[in-house]
Design a binder for these strands. Structure first.
Lengths: 213, 213
DNA sequence: GTCTATACACTGATAGAC
DNA sequence: GTCTATCAGTGTATAGAC
């Protein structure tokens, strides 16, 4: 066996192992919930002995907290499309596409987030009260501006945002139910496109932001 | 202390205790998840010793199964409004009202259902494959009929249904997030009405079922 | 039908050799 | 940095007196 690769430094070993553990933890927390997840399951999926997890993350809760924080960062990035858009058709349309893509690519993360919020956010309540509040206020202001400019009907911006979150995340959080109703098969490319198109069509027409009627 | 009331029969004791236990279990399962819930927590909330729970329900899983089944029955009843309606404005409008009312009155049940589905429905997969499939097919047929009769635009009925579920259940499942974004307070009567009105306005206009434009 | 005491399994976390 | 062995705590479930 040729020894071409340089042996990893301790720092690289740590980074790689932390990555592997976080990836496994996200899946296990998503499938079993915080209470149902065990360090043993995470260790098995990561291919490491259980004790090593405690070497990299002191407690189960610390590991969970890292997982949730990473997911929250991804959430916020999806909103970039929102701000630079000239109007709701482009802005909300791009936001729906971005959130649907996250639901498709990272369903586990979405489930962990949903579970955390459903259990009254014991770990990330501070994020909800600071970052999420600011983010929501900012996006509501953008929507209100579009309304004032006559680019869409006077819809309550807050409930419109909730509708966007609910609809897009549903495809991740309730993915199993959707698969069951699709004869047990995951949605195809075409079906994902149909979902995106239907959502955008209903919402954009529903807020009077398109000339469909 | 006057002994006016007749002592309860054994049958009545059983019925009453089962009711109290199921009510407590729904709350605890909703707040902690199946894995995070303990029989001790349920017993304390029900005001009974832990051992009594095992007398009425043999295992934790059997108790959980009862809880989920009861919730599913409630889900289905909300759809009655759907079938008897002459068109989408009445049918979908009433369905949104009914589902929002469930989210408000029984948020714990909604969370238990969401949690069960997120974890790949280990307990009620058979219900998904039979009852839910039939229910969904029936409702899709109703929507398709409305489309054929020209009462609404040709929207993909399946994704419209998912949108209705997602949007209405969001107010229960993510109620904690919504409260946090409402300065920590539960939604008032007026805010619930605003939510219902916004959702109905967007969706009914979005499917071309109202003359708002 | 009720309740105390307890058996038995499992989990998170740690100690200590390598 | 890795891994085996193990501890202390907790959970479900049951036995048996009342």
């Amino acid at each position: 066996m040729p020894q071409t690769a340089r042996p990893l430094s301790k720092k690289e070993i740590r980074q790689e192992n932390e990555r592997v553990i976080l990836e496994a933890a996200e899946k296990v927390f998503a499938e079993a919930g915080f209470g149902g997840a065990t360090m043993q399951l995470i260790a098995d999926l990561a291919g490491l002995p259980k004790a090593n997890l405690h070497y990299y993350f002191p407690t189960k809760e610390a590991l969970y907290r890292e997982v949730v924080q990473k997911i929250f960062q991804n959430w916020l990035k999806a909103a970039d499309a929102f701000d630079e858009a000239p109007g709701p058709v482009e802005g909300i349309g791009a936001y729906i596409d971005a959130k649907m893509e996250i639901s498709r690519q990272h369903p586990a993360g979405s489930k962990v987030w949903a579970s955390e919020v459903m259990h009254r956010a014991p770990v990330i309540q501070d994020y909800l009260e600071t970052t999420l509040v600011e983010w929501t206020d900012g996006r509501m202001a953008v929507i209100q501006r579009w309304i004032d400019e006559g680019k869409m009907d006077p819809i309550d911006p807050r409930h419109l945002l909730y509708m966007l979150w609910a609809t897009t995340q549903h495809y991740a959080d309730f993915g199993h139910q959707i698969e069951t109703l699709n004869d047990g098969a995951a949605l195809s490319d075409a079906q994902w496109e149909a979902a995106k198109a239907t959502i955008k069509s209903i919402i954009l027409a529903g807020i009077g932001a398109t000339g469909r009627h």
